[in-house]
């Protein structure tokens, strides 16, 4: 079943179709949540909880969604997720006292991760016919990353999606720079294989 078929079935009221539909984007949203939470709030917000909240709201408000293809759905889910992150951040900073710099940094990082993981999106929306025939690259990437061993995935996310340098990653993962570089190479080499399984 393609995303487009699931969208149309979900619209006729099939809860099963909506469930399967949202499930297609779990890995993508978790990855986006993870990047959005960023290094500052790690340990304070949980990416899986955020995704669950996003799904709950998507279930409740699916009637408001007007699109019929994957790019529009991904965009809609991203907005719900971004609003959840923003609320949680406001809540968190609200209890800690205001820190404008942190909030600004966070706003910037949300912008950037949306760029990084949604760059494909704007292009697809501008040509709906094309968009319908292929999956969102960012969704496929998130699925492939979810199939990698955790330490491989971490290095690729930190280096290529969060833009950290290898010395920064080494410090963060409490490993030597040499070892995180090796993990990165192995992860990259394996990424195509696990993507092959996905298609």
């Amino acid at each position: 079943m393609t995303a487009e078929q699931l969208i149309s079935d979900a619209r006729t009221g099939s809860a099963a179709a909506l469930g399967s539909l949202l499930e297609l984007y779990r890995n993508y949203l978790r990855l986006l949540a993870r990047v959005e939470i960023g290094r500052r709030l790690q340990g304070k917000l949980d990416a899986s909880d955020l995704v669950q909240d996003t799904f709950t709201e998507a279930h409740r408000n699916f009637g408001l969604f007007r699109g019929n293809a994957e790019p529009q759905l991904v965009s809609w889910l991203r907005q719900i997720l971004a609003a959840k992150v923003a609320n949680l951040v406001r809540h968190y900073f609200g209890t800690q006292g205001r820190d404008i710099r942190l909030e600004q940094d966070l706003a910037r990082s949300i912008d950037n991760s949306s760029h990084a993981l949604g760059g494909d999106l704007a292009a697809s929306i501008s040509s709906p016919s094309q968009a319908a025939s292929r999956r969102e690259q960012a969704v496929l990437l998130a699925d492939a990353l979810s199939r990698l061993p955790e330490d491989y995935r971490d290095v690729i996310v930190l280096r290529n999606l969060e833009g950290l340098t290898f010395p920064e990653i080494a410090k963060r993962m409490q490993r030597s720079q040499d070892s995180v570089e090796k993990l990165w190479l192995r992860g990259l080499a394996r990424l195509r294989q696990v993507c092959g399984e996905a298609v």
Binding site: H115, G119, G187, L188, A189
Partner: peptide
Amino acid sequence: AQCLDGLDFVHKAAAPGIRPE
């Protein structure tokens, strides 16, 4: 070639403005 496959895949999904800086 395997590593470049992985890199190409990441970059195709992640668009040019990938590094925050």
